[in-house]
Design a protein around this nucleic acid. Structure first.
Lengths: 230, 230
DNA sequence: GATGCGGTTATGTCTAGACATATTAAAACC
DNA sequence: GGTTTTAATATGTCTAGACATAACCGCATC
């Protein structure tokens, strides 16, 4: 372990154990320099990592303080569906329903994807069971137009991930009732609860794609793990 | 802007614009040193931040390379309900239903909270409308026992956030049908879809609290923003 | 009391080196 | 030819300073 790592983990341990409580001041850099017998840059780098991880807050003149933890953010895993289903030991499948260029579409109005856009609809399968309905718009002015049969075999999410770089994404997660057509496609009761994930993706300010995935509520749940600074 | 910031943003811009593509090698540190006329530590710090942000990958002897972006994680905002509702311009309210010590409970078996635990049930209000049902277990061996009337006025989430440090959290998000009792409390149709967020919180390996919050699907949705390295 | 001015102080950034370490490519050897 | 050794090289860590900057404190002034 490097010296910098040791300083960092020493302080982190004292915070996680509760010996140092939120708001407490941790030793000044020059005190840690004396304690560990090293250069200030080494101490400073250790503190910088703790600050970056959100465990401490550094203030000029005042010193460094243990941060007040806040459950405000969690890291949400957004796995590739194919990988996720394979990891469950089931066979992944993708069935393309629709793939055409559209100029007018309800989602075009609200998603920010400019017309004309490529509209793709299809179903993800886990074994024989439908696992998710997908409805996607792809901005044709930003994405290099794929071959007509590209999305017959490969789900557009996987293809985009490997072919189109992106810089920003936004997710919206909510619960909806299946309703008629959706329920039929997912082989569900008409008022079954479904988890709906919408994702907008941009590349340097230009909309790339918008996708709405609808999962049966009893077959999928999102899990987010969070360790502050972990 | 500091020099280090400038170096970082120059390279970041070239990556985000697509001038540098995933897998491309970025200039060696000594080349950047020559280009900017600064010390290697300054260049190295700029690259370290890019690497920490996941935009580049550094390999000894080989150099630094633009990382392959992956939509695998997003930052999920989990706001304090009181703040969230206040931000919407509505009046926040909390109504306590149950607050007692339990030794046996369906959730105790699965949540990892050891018995005896404090069971709290209540409703969050936005104006006159019920906004969420909450059912919570608090580990009495880890949390300093609050006064009996603590949770009459303040929701336990807010109280815990300010009084009990935590080190790990896990969220599970899914869609459920309201069902009978839940639907009555939330004033919903019996088969309305609801978003259910479950959160486990630990402190250095010991379970602190488990909470299940159920939101009407049409009144709440989670939003996660993500910029790689942002 | 309120306001503005320095002085002090801790962190923020930076320099110009040094040695360590991981990795690759070339060279030497079997 | 195939394997091992060796040298070259880019990053990783570190030192011992320097000056910049923000923030706080006390003091003098209004």
């Amino acid at each position: 372990m490097t010296l910098q790592e040791r300083i960092r983990s020493d302080i982190e341990e004292r915070i996680r154990s509760g010996a140092l409580r939120p708001g407490d001041r941790i030793p000044f850099e020059h005190e840690l320099v004396a304690q560990y017998g090293c250069a200030r840059a080494t101490v400073s780098k250790a503190l910088e990592r703790l600050a970056h991880a959100g465990l401490i807050e550094r203030r000029r003149k005042a010193g460094s303080f243990v941060a007040h933890p806040q459950v405000h953010a969690a890291v949400l895993a957004v796995p590739d569906l194919a990988q996720l289903i394979a990891a469950r030991g089931e066979r992944y499948g993708w069935a393309l329903d629709t793939c055409r260029v559209v100029n007018r579409d309800p989602d075009i109005e609200v998603s920010g994807i400019p017309a004309p856009a490529l509209l793709i609809e299809g179903v993800h399968f886990a074994g024989e069971q439908p696992f998710a309905i997908e409805r996607r718009l792809i901005a044709l002015d930003t994405v290099p137009v794929p071959r007509a049969d590209t999305f017959e075999a490969e789900a557009p999410g996987s293809w985009l991930l490997h072919h189109v770089p992106w810089t920003d994404a936004r997710h919206r997660i909510r619960a909806v009732s299946a309703g008629g057509p959706l329920a039929r496609k997912l082989k569900l009761d008409a008022h079954a609860a479904c988890l709906q994930v919408e994702r907008w993706t941009w590349r340097t300010g230009r909309a790339v794609t918008f996708v709405r995935q609808t999962f049966p509520g009893d077959r999928y749940d999102l899990v987010a793990e969070f360790t502050p600074g972990g």
